[in-house]
Amino acid sequence: MGQTVILGVIGSDAHVVGITIIEQALTAAGFDVENLGVQTSRAEFVSAAEAHDAGAVLVSSLYGHARQDCRGLHERLAEADCDAVTYIGGNLAVGQDDWSETAEHFRELGFDRVFDAETDPSAVVAALERDLDTTVTETATDRVRVDS
């Protein structure tokens, strides 16, 4: 498992502000980041993870269709022998669903961590630092939202 972090907005979603800010936070914290941008397919996530021997795959979704868009992603990562940790964050369901139920659903799909749209990027940085067991530049933990 490498250290590169793959980042992208899945599906037809074009919300770019959130991953732009996450990218900045990770880069500032010393991670190697491969930002696939908006409207990234499952296949693109898998091939990027493979190509970069990714340590982590971070999926963003803000438009409410994450359930459909993520279906099969983990199976394909496994087929490609990718052992990266996987996170997902954003507005993960349409409407006012119960969050714990939503989070549970995505953990069942195979995501190691699930973040809501109010998550501070520093929380993602901290989680990655633990999960990748790496020493990176220390980072402040001001609360910053990533809901867009």
Binding site: V17, I21, Q24, A28, P121, D142, V144, R145, D147, S148
Partner: peptide
């Protein structure tokens, strides 16, 4: 001076302010 200002500013008006100061718009 950091990207945290950017993130705060993106949300500021919907949170009721113009500038995303720390300690405001905190959910």
């Amino acid at each position: 001076r950091s990207f945290r200002m950017v993130a705060d500013d993106v949300d500021a008006i919907s949170d009721g302010k113009l500038i995303g100061r720390p300690g405001t718009g905190d959910g």
